[in-house]
Design a protein around this nucleic acid. Structure first.
Lengths: 223, 223
DNA sequence: CTAGAGTTTTATCAAACAGTCAATATTTCG
DNA sequence: CGAAATATTGACTGTTTGATAAAACTCTAG
């Protein structure tokens, strides 16, 4: 019988192995070229099997893509899930930033997969963003607002705060080539991420304005 | 005679008009689907001309892409170019952030074009990044270091500072769909960018740590 | 060991794709 | 005007791509 995912049926050893290999190869290709730029041929080649064989496990290109997204979304949202109301705000936020940065370091392909999808208008996962991401962000934004009301962190729009954490951390995965061109090969990947972590800590905690200059607060604000 | 760019030759009115239309259409397609995902047929259709006609002006797909990149890179680096050593550091940085954010607001397709290219490993413009972007960043990083030595801004790695400005501002163009899902349709595009500007100002100047706990200026700036 | 389920391959298809060519139409300019 | 330069088109080529059909092979449970 056909190995269709829709049916409730135990998976064969070979099925499990091959779907794994296909999804890994697909991650490689989709994250590097986007949905339209990736081809079944290259995914099959990368997975070490013939194209018809691959299509035996996933009937259509889009099926591979959707399986991949479904498998990765939860993992991707884990750091934000972990943001907890009970901890102290600043360490809690630092921890969130650190986790996101570690995700960018350890799972750059996953980061680029989502980046490609969103960048190209999220035609295939927009619904998923509305049903999964939006409520999660709303929930965590409420926690942040609580901290702001209590004066434990500066008052800002919590959703924009979350955007800035996403963008600054994922930048190191998504724009890695550019980062490497600019930083040069001096420090390895690990060193780059340490530097990034140190910088982001300063930025998010204290910003750029020096804490106390010699006399008074100049507070230059306007442009 | 053929209308090849390699030859020193005055351009016809029709040539100018058509190249313009082609490049605009190409920006639309390349920014939405990446190099491999975009097709000549769709670019031609979008430009309102037949495919062979388009190929009369640009012989290969890659030629369109390269012409587009060449035309846009300078404009894209303009805000950083404008960062000036003589101004006061904080207003100067604020101004840079504001400019970058305006670019994201006014030229989202250009932002996505570059994002797509870098995301996919910059295979076509890596050399350009090394020859144009790297020296510019090095130059401006030196200005930032000067301000840090003078104690006018906090001491951080200036290149990571630049990364964070790029990522936070371009996020509003590149990840626009996601931003819209999360913020909802309440405020229009203009409103979103005002909010973003206000938030980024707080972030980059003061970070999240409250300035002085009780007493002093509450610094409530609400949403 | 063997029947049937599960897996892989070979052959194939139609559509999409980048790019070419020669013929035709239009514009420019002396 | 009329010839040369420029622009546009239709018809076409070879390749890539997503997808299918059926035959052949392999594994596994009884």
């Amino acid at each position: 019988m056909k190995a269709r995912a829709t049916e409730t049926q135990r998976k064969t050893r070979i099925q499990i192995e091959n779907e794994e290999r296909i999804l890994d190869a697909a991650l490689e290709e989709f994250s590097a070229h986007g949905f339209r730029g990736a081809t079944i041929d290259r995914i099959a080649e990368h997975a070490g099997m013939s194209k018809p064989n691959l299509l035996y496990y996933f009937r259509r290109k889009q099926d591979i893509y959707e399986a991949l997204i479904a498998r990765l979304l939860d993992k991707w949202l884990e750091p934000l899930q972990a943001l907890d109301a009970v901890g102290d705000p600043l360490p809690e936020l630092q921890s969130y930033i650190r986790r996101k940065l570690e995700m960018a370091r350890d799972f750059p392909r996953e980061s680029r997969l989502f980046a490609n999808e969103i960048l190209q208008g999220a035609p295939r996962i927009k619904r998923l963003l509305e049903s999964e991401l939006k409520p999660l962000v709303d929930e965590k934004a409420e926690i942040l607002r609580g901290w702001m009301r209590a004066g434990q962190i500066n008052t800002v729009d919590p959703r924009h705060l979350i955007f800035s954490i996403w963008s600054t951390t994922q930048h190191y995965a998504d724009f890695d080539v550019q980062v490497q061109v600019i930083l040069g090969p001096d420090r390895g990947a690990a060193g780059r991420f340490e530097d990034a972590a140190r910088y982001l800590e300063t930025l998010f905690l204290d910003g750029l304005r020096p804490k106390d200059k010699a006399g008074g607060t100049p507070r230059v604000r306007d442009l």
